[in-house]
């Protein structure tokens, strides 16, 4: 209990420092917001092209596809602001041996290593997500409270899986020094989350649900918001994120056991 509280306090302090750092460069922040909004607008454009020609694509209508895009922007923000910077920091710590110091602190080392930094200036896609999501919800009838709760839970479970995937990348860095490229691979794989999962077929669909679990984060919550959730959907999400949690925790332990510090 004490350790949990300490961990939360430590993480909160680290995040406060990160945000304060970003706030020092206010004109950068404004410029970043402007570019992010414009680039995101261009990301939505293909959907408008598609739905200019068709009422429905793979069973999804425009507002629901826009909801998927909104969740995709959220994913984008989380990935750019939290997951990616920490991978960089962690790899650096493994390489330089700074990890020794983190291991000695009285908090959970995995969380300390993987959640120590937030790049607040990368959180702009969240603004785009709110805009697109707002427009999408305005085009349909509002979802009921149960649907909203489920959507939040599904999104959370998806984010946990994605966090675990990035943690696995950190684990890889214990053996291979150059994991920079892994980062780009993860980014381009998660790009597939921008469309409703039903446009993908066969093994790709399975991969995007269980291996690079972007469908869990974007399509599943959107599915819940349109009231089209069922037991299978909830079960899949829970099973995949549980498997990711257990698997990545196991990999983290194995990696730590193999860690020989940079100085020894």
């Amino acid at each position: 209990m004490l350790e949990a509280r300490r961990t939360v306090q430590a993480l909160a302090a680290l995040i406060r420092v990160s945000v304060a750092t970003a706030m020092q460069y206010r004109s950068n922040l404004l410029f970043g917001l402007a570019t992010a909004l414009l680039v995101d607008a261009m990301r939505v454009a293909p959907l408008l092209l598609v739905y200019g020609q068709r009422e429905q694509v793979a069973g999804w209508e425009l507002p629901h596809a826009l909801l998927v895009t909104a969740f995709f922007f959220l994913l984008f923000g989380v990935q750019a602001a939290v997951l990616e910077p920490n991978l960089g920091e962690a790899v650096q710590a493994v390489r330089s041996g700074a990890l020794d110091l983190m291991l000695m602190k009285p908090v959970d080392a995995q969380l300390l290593v993987s959640l120590r930094k937030v790049d607040a200036s990368s959180l702009f896609p969240v603004v785009s997500a709110l805009l697109v999501g707002g427009v999408a919800l305005g085009m349909t009838e509002l979802p009921g409270p149960v649907d909203v709760l489920l959507a939040v839970a599904l999104f959370g479970s998806g984010v946990v899986s994605l966090y675990c995937l990035w943690l696995l990348a950190i684990c890889v860095s214990f053996w291979f020094v150059r994991v920079d490229n892994l980062r780009f691979l993860l980014w381009s794989a998660t790009d597939a989350g921008r469309w409703p999962i039903d446009v993908f077929r066969g093994p790709v669909r399975w991969i995007l649900t269980a291996v690079v679990p972007v469908a869990l984060i974007t399509s599943f919550p959107a599915q819940a918001l349109r009231g089209a959730w069922d037991v299978e959907l909830l079960g899949t999400s829970a099973a995949v994120s549980a498997a990711f949690l257990l698997g990545s925790r196991w990999a983290w332990r194995r990696s730590l056991a193999a860690y020989a510090s940079a100085s020894s």
């Binding site: 293909p46 490229n181 780009f184 980014w187 381009s188 469309w195 039903d198 790709v204």
Partner: peptide, 23 residues
Amino acid sequence: AEMVIWILTSTMPLIMLALWNAV
């Protein structure tokens, strides 16, 4: 090896293909 990964990261046309194929 780096070059191979760089090439693998250009998945965007395939992602777009999935969408347009459904259309």
